[in-house]
């Protein structure tokens, strides 16, 4: 099922990806080709097959809910694009 350009725009917005308007048809073409490849999955019946989430059938390991890391605020803020007074800076959210 080919992907329409407007569907590409909707998905791009959901993924928070700006895509140049002029490139949308190219993305629609390439993504449609990938979806055609993926459609090969429909050639096999999978009724009753349990989906496999982890190749070792492992479940998530839990740990006690205790603090194990020291304060690294300075180290993390040091690599941020914009900070002020020890806080991450973003454009105004509430007008």
């Amino acid at each position: 099922m080919p992907l329409r350009p407007d569907e590409v725009e909707t998905i791009a917005h959901l993924a928070r990806l700006s895509i140049d308007q002029s490139l949308i048809p190219e993305y629609a073409r390439d993504l449609s080709a990938i979806l055609a490849l993926v459609e090969k999955m429909n050639t096999v019946n999978t009724d009753g097959v349990e989906p496999m989430v982890n190749p070792l059938e492992a479940v998530q390991r839990l740990r006690p809910d205790v603090v194990t890391e020291g304060d690294q605020r300075e180290a993390f803020l040091a690599i941020a694009p914009a900070v002020e007074d020890g806080l991450y800076l973003v454009p105004r959210v509430i007008e």
Binding site: V8, I11, I34, N42, T46, P51
Partner: peptide, 26 residues
């Protein structure tokens, strides 16, 4: 990221993501 975002949409999840995980088991 676009293909992956699409595969996780409610309307495609069953036929895309879950289907792929079933094939993974096969």
């Amino acid at each position: 990221l676009l293909i992956g975002t699409r595969a996780l949409l409610a309307e495609y999840y069953q036929d895309a993501f879950l289907k792929a995980q079933k094939i993974r088991r096969l």
